[in-house]
């Protein structure tokens, strides 16, 4: 078997660098979106509002029970049509389109947000009740206590898990190839089909993912130990 590493590096390399830009962009926005969605869902789920609780639980179930890839397709293809149809009812003709990248960011925000909300929720529930009581006894309201003394330690205790999610999200960006986001997999696939350097192309692709994810997971382990020490 003849392997052409040099040609692969010189042709695929620059393209993949651009692809990394896309991956970083989508991951950063998607991750921040996920944190916000996760926090909001978690707060809603620990509130004593029964109806809200039921609705959010159902929503989280719905998202966790369907594959991320299907959600990307849904946001990219179906949601614009639904919006058009809905606006059509009011006699407004729209032709909404959601770009593939934006679909990716939205999909990640919602999907990861649901998983993160469970992490944050259980972290909130496992904060020592004494923290809440101490706040109440000083004269803080329940809401102030939640935001001031319960959520911050809960978030802090969730950081190691978030680290894992970040690494998972980076790898999951490869799903976006299916809705034509020019990320790493799609670029590699195009290159491989044009040059037939299949072995080289996909090996390089795998290595690129490894080079990004391994240091990040190491970092999250270090962070976890550091946080534990501070108690």
């Amino acid at each position: 078997m003849d392997l052409h590493w040099e040609r692969t590096f010189s042709k695929l390399g620059p393209s993949l660098l651009e692809g990394i830009g896309v991956v970083v962009y989508v991951t950063i926005l998607g991750f921040m979106g996920g944190l916000i969605v996760g926090l909001l869902l978690a707060i809603g789920r620990v509130s004593r509002h029964k109806v809200l609780n039921r609705i959010l639980t159902l929503f989280i179930e719905l998202i966790r029970g369907t594959p991320l890839l299907v959600q990307f397709f849904y946001i990219y293809y179906v949601v614009p049509m639904l919006i058009d149809a809905l606006m059509g009812v009011f006699g407004v003709h729209t032709n909404v389109q959601i770009s593939a990248t934006v679909s990716g960011v939205i999909g990640f925000s919602i999907n990861y947000g649901c998983y993160m909300s469970e992490v944050i929720r259980s972290a909130i529930l496992s904060v020592n009740p004494g923290q809440r009581e101490a706040g109440l006894a000083l004269g803080y309201s329940e809401r102030q206590v939640l935001f001031q003394f319960v959520i911050p330690p809960a978030i802090r205790n969730s950081i190691p898990v978030f680290g894992n999610y970040l690494v998972m999200m980076i790898k999951d960006t490869s799903l976006l190839a299916m809705i034509s986001v020019q990320e790493l997999l799609l670029r590699t696939k195009t290159f491989a089909s044009q040059t037939f350097l299949t072995v080289e192309a996909y090996t390089v692709l795998a290595l690129v993912y490894l080079v990004i994810s391994v240091p990040l997971s190491r970092l999250s382990v270090v962070l976890e130990k550091k946080l534990k020490r501070k108690g």
Binding site: N128, G130, Q131, L136, A137, L138, G139, F149, P153
Partner: peptide, 23 residues
């Protein structure tokens, strides 16, 4: 009702497990 927090400001409490704010 809601003004219980004003009452609690006037009555301090010290707990068995201290309950200091760790962060």
């Amino acid at each position: 009702g809601k003004s219980v927090k004003n009452y609690r400001k006037r009555v301090g409490m010290v707990f068995q497990r201290f309950n200091l704010f760790g962060l």
